[in-house]
């Protein structure tokens, strides 16, 4: 019990240190870019960056929850594709359906996909990496065999569906608003609610969580369901934003999402990191892309920088963890 009370404040400051690092990196990057080209801070430019972040941030929020439980969901890019194509097909066939139905349909498609992942991980006792690598192929294959090379074009989609990406409420685009609500809501759940703390406990030590009486099965299914549902939601946002949807939508997104989560300070060992940190990670990755374009740096550098950043983030995370462990050991020896 004494170690618990010692640990809590140390971990609190550790979180702060991790996310502070991202915020500082963001500020430095935005500042440097804005000095080089003031247009970077124009309303249109900021709007573009936020719109581009929104889809990634929604998926990163779900992925962060899964990674915190010491699992991974590689199928999110395929779920996005399946959901985007399903919803676009539905909306082009029934143009009178309101937007909320499209959003719910996307969530539902994603939730089913996510639930299947969770069931296979929990009840099939198959490692999450294997399950979601498998369903990455399966969901993408389903999208392809459904679409069969066809695509839904922007002119087949109802206007209110497409304008959703550009409409705004109080000056904030709907897409961004949804992303803020999702990242904020999931952060709150993970930080302040019992189920969130249980998910952290599961990631810190799966057997200990089980022994402590945590409903591991229910929580794990919930985590995968959430990740799938949010990827499905991202599919609807993708379809609304880009208008043209084929079966390849979102191919390779899983790596961007995992990158955002890792850069955002969520440890792949599980048990630490925060959802809003993952959201910041998504923002940072998007800002890097835009900054390179504004600074006239060869856009081909973008991916190399993102890759280097991921390695850097893991390294920094490791450094903090080692220091934390050392300071805890020191304190324990004094007790």
């Amino acid at each position: 019990m004494t170690t618990m009370t010692v640990k809590a404040p140390a971990i609190g400051s550790f979180f702060k240190a991790r996310e502070l690092g991202i915020v500082l990196a963001l500020v430095a990057l935005v500042g440097y870019t804005a000095i080089g080209n003031p247009r970077f801070l124009s309303g249109q430019s900021i709007r573009d960056i936020l719109l581009n972040t929104a889809i990634l941030a929604v998926m990163a929020a779900g992925q962060a929850v899964v990674v915190i439980t010491r699992n991974i969901d590689l199928s999110v890019g395929s779920v996005l594709g399946l959901s985007a194509f399903a919803v676009a097909t539905m909306m082009s066939a029934n143009p009178d359906l309101p937007m909320i139905v499209a959003l719910l349909a996307g969530l539902a498609v994603g939730a089913v996909c996510g639930l299947l992942n969770g069931v296979l991980v929990r009840y099939g006792r198959v490692p999450a990496l294997v399950v979601t690598l498998g369903t990455l192929y399966i969901y993408r294959g389903l999208a392809y065999s459904w679409a069969g090379g066809s695509q839904v074009n922007a002119d087949e989609l109802p206007r209110h569906f497409l304008s959703f990406a550009n409409d705004s409420l109080l000056g904030i685009p709907w897409l961004v608003l949804i992303a803020i609500v999702v990242v904020g809501g999931v952060s709150l759940m993970m930080r302040n609610y019992r189920v969130g703390r249980e998910l952290y406990a599961m990631g810190s030590s799966p057997p200990a969580a089980e022994l402590a009486g945590i409903k591991v099965a229910r929580n794990l299914l919930g985590a995968f369901l959430l990740s799938g549902a949010l990827a499905g939601l991202a599919g609807v946002l993708f379809a609304a934003r880009f208008g043209t949807v084929d079966a390849a939508a979102g191919t390779g997104y899983e790596l961007n999402v995992v990158a955002a989560v890792v850069v955002g300070g969520v440890a792949v060992f599980g048990g630490s990191g925060s959802v809003w940190g993952a959201g910041l990670g998504a923002l940072l990755l998007t800002v890097i892309g835009s900054a390179l374009a504004v600074l006239d740096i060869n856009q081909f550098w973008q991916q190399a920088i993102v890759g280097a950043l991921i390695v850097l983030a893991i390294g920094a995370d490791r450094l903090v963890a080692v220091r934390l462990a050392r300071s805890l050991r020191k304190r324990d020896s004094h007790v």
């Binding site: 973008q302 190399a304 893991i314």
Partner: peptide, 14 residues
């Protein structure tokens, strides 16, 4: 897993 996802992006970027 994390390192090679990072170098996956890094080497492709190079």
């Amino acid at each position: 897993l994390a390192v090679t996802i990072g170098t996956l992006a890094f080497y492709r970027g190079l």
